[in-house]
C-alpha cells in the first residue's frame, strides 16, 4: 500500500495565507529548494564561476568555498540533480530544502527593522544589491541577502524559524509589519 505524505511547513499554523500586504511586509516562502554547495579542495573559484553563471539559481555566500543555492523555480530533487550535473566532482551538494526556511522582508523600513537584530551596516552603500552574508539576528544565525532595493531574503534553520518569526514580528511592530505566506 503506497503512502501519500503531506508536507508541512515549519510555520504552517503560525502564518496565514496571502492577504493584503502592508507597506512593510514579511513573506514566508511556502516552497523552495535550497542546497548547500561545498567546493572540493582547490575547486573554490571554478565552482563559484559555474554557480554565478547559472541564471536559474540564486547563490548566497556563507563561507569560503561554501554557498547556499536558493531557487523557487525548481523542486529540491531537480535542483540537486542540476547542481550535480553542473558541478560534478568539484563540489558536494547537500539538500537543505527542508532544513531551512526562506523569508522575504520588503518595504522602505526593512533596514530599520533588521537593525534591531543585525549588527552589520545595511546602508545601501555598504550592503549593495546582490550582497549576502551569514549574520546573527538577535540570538539566531541567518543568511541575509539583499535581492532588490528594499527587499531582503533571509534563510534560517528550520528549528529556529518560529523564534525568528516572533523576533521579526516584534522588530516590525512599530511599522505594522504584515506577515503572510507568499503566493
Amino acid at each position: 500500500m503506497p503512502h501519500q505524505f503531506q508536507e508541512r511547513h515549519a510555520l504552517e499554523e503560525l502564518v496565514s495565507m496571502n492577504a493584503a500586504a502592508a507597506a512593510d511586509h514579511l513573506a514566508v516562502v511556502a516552497r523552495q529548494a535550497i542546497v548547500v554547495v561545498l567546493a572540493a579542495e582547490g575547486q573554490e573559484a571554478s565552482v563559484a564561476a559555474l554557480l554565478t553563471a547559472d541564471e536559474e539559481i540564486s547563490v548566497r555566500f556563507s563561507a569560503p568555498g561554501e554557498w547556499l543555492v536558493v531557487t523557487g523555480l525548481q523542486t529540491p530533487e531537480l535542483l540537486q540533480q542540476s547542481l550535480a550535473a553542473l558541478l560534478r566532482e568539484t563540489a558536494h551538494c547537500v539538500d537543505q530544502s527542508h532544513g531551512r526556511v526562506l523569508l522575504r522582508l520588503s518595504g522602505a523600513n526593512s533596514r530599520a527593522i533588521l537593525a534591531k537584530g543585525i549588527g552589520i551596516d545595511l546602508h545601501p552603500s555598504a550592503f549593495v544589491i546582490g550582497s549576502s552574508a551569514n549574520v546573527l539576528c538577535g540570538h539566531i544565525s541567518i543568511n541575509l541577502a539583499l535581492v532588490d532595493k528594499n527587499s531582503f531574503e533571509i534563510v534560517v534553520m528550520r528549528s529556529f524559524a518560529e523564534s525568528l518569526l516572533h523576533d521579526l514580528c516584534e522588530m516590525g511592530r512599530a511599522f505594522d509589519l504584515s506577515v503572510f505566506f507568499a503566493p
Binding site: 563561507a63 569560503p64 549588527g119 552589520i120 551596516d121 552574508a133 551569514n134 549574520v135 546573527l136
Partner: peptide, 10 residues
C-alpha cells in the same frame, strides 16, 4: 577576513 566587520557576539 571573509565576512567583513562583525559584532563580537558572532
Amino acid at each position: 577576513p571573509h565576512c567583513g566587520v562583525r559584532p563580537k557576539e558572532e
